[in-house]
Simulated scan of single mutants.
Amino acid sequence: MPLLGFVEQLGLGALITIQVAVLSYLLALLVGTLFALATVRRKPVMNVFWQVYASIFTGVPSLLVAFLFYYAGSGMIASLFSLVGMRVTIEVNPFAAAVVALGLVYGAYIADIVRSAIHNVPAGQFEAANVLLIPRPAAWFFVILPQVLRFALPALTNMWIVVLKDTALISLIGLKEIMTYARLASGVTKEPFIYYILAAAFFLLMTGLTYLVSQRVEGWTERGSRRATAKGVARAL
């Protein structure tokens, strides 16, 4: 196969890598945020459930979790449906196994990040929302969560980069992402340096774009606090 053909395959693998990383991160963000909101008040039952979940998915390597979902996922789904008297057969492909595995593993880490950010929101913000009789869902969505995003953004950005890099491990379950094609091209052409450098350049490019986007988002989240700080300085003068 000509060099251009392998480069084209690397491009297809890069697209799969981005898809897996984005979907995994969104799932992790959803799972982590839900757990953070559910455990922020330390409810005993939810706390026990959280401890079990966090102990499992932070104590087991993400690659091993992906193996479990890929090879035993169909059986687990069938067992769950059998509890309600339904017979369902669903084949778990490498893409789905990778997304679910990475999403659940890093959801545990994101839960800690979001919960810490919630605790960093000044208590006066919650009290002000109650005094103004703002409905609880609206207070969380428009008042609390924007501040949580500002506090959690640096850690969430780093977590996205970790998820992106961890997609390289998922090639071991048969997912044809960029590392799979880089390894294939290296074996055929006997020139591993070229293709692994191209794969490395892809991850470096994605990391650079991540930092650029995170700086824009950070600037957007800091707008309100900067105005408040500026007014406070002006009054002090």
Rank of each mutant, 00 (worst) to 15 (best):
R216Q: 14
P137I: 03
E177S: 09
F202E: 00
L204K: 02
P137C: 08
L184N: 06
T167S: 06
A168Y: 03
L198T: 05
F142A: 14
V213G: 01
W220G: 07
H119A: 14
L132F: 10
A139G: 08
N120A: 15
R216I: 12
Q125P: 00
E222W: 15
Y196M: 09
V131A: 09
T189K: 08
M159A: 10
Q215F: 02
A182R: 02
G124Y: 13
V213F: 13
T157C: 07
G174M: 07
L169C: 10
F203V: 04
F141W: 14
L212Y: 13
R115A: 08
G187I: 13
L132E: 07
L164I: 09
P135A: 07
I170Y: 10
S186A: 15
A168S: 14
L169P: 04
V188T: 12
T180S: 11
F202T: 04
A199S: 09
L198H: 04
N120I: 14
A200C: 02
K190T: 13
L184P: 02
L153C: 11
I161M: 09
L175W: 04
A155V: 10
K165S: 10
F142G: 07
R115Q: 08
W140E: 09
G208W: 14
Y211Q: 01
F142W: 15
L198C: 08
S214H: 12
P122V: 11
Q125S: 07
T221K: 02
R115Y: 05
H119K: 05
M159K: 12
V121W: 01
V131I: 13
A200P: 00
R150W: 09
E177H: 09
T210K: 04
F203C: 09
L133Q: 15
P192N: 00
L169W: 06
T180V: 11
T167D: 06
P154F: 08
F203I: 04
R136A: 11
E222H: 14
I197G: 09
T189W: 10
L212N: 05
V163P: 03
T167Y: 03
L205T: 08
Y211R: 08
S186R: 10
V163R: 04
Q215P: 06
S214P: 02
P135W: 02
S225M: 12
V162Y: 14
I178A: 02
P192K: 00
L164S: 00
A128I: 01
D166S: 14
V148K: 00
A182K: 02
A123S: 15
L209V: 12
F126D: 03
A152V: 08
W220A: 12
Q125A: 10
G174C: 07
T210F: 05
N130V: 15
E218D: 13
I144H: 01
P192R: 02
Y211C: 00
G174Y: 00
L204W: 15
L132Y: 11
M206W: 06
V217D: 01
T167E: 07
I118Q: 00
V131P: 03
I194C: 09
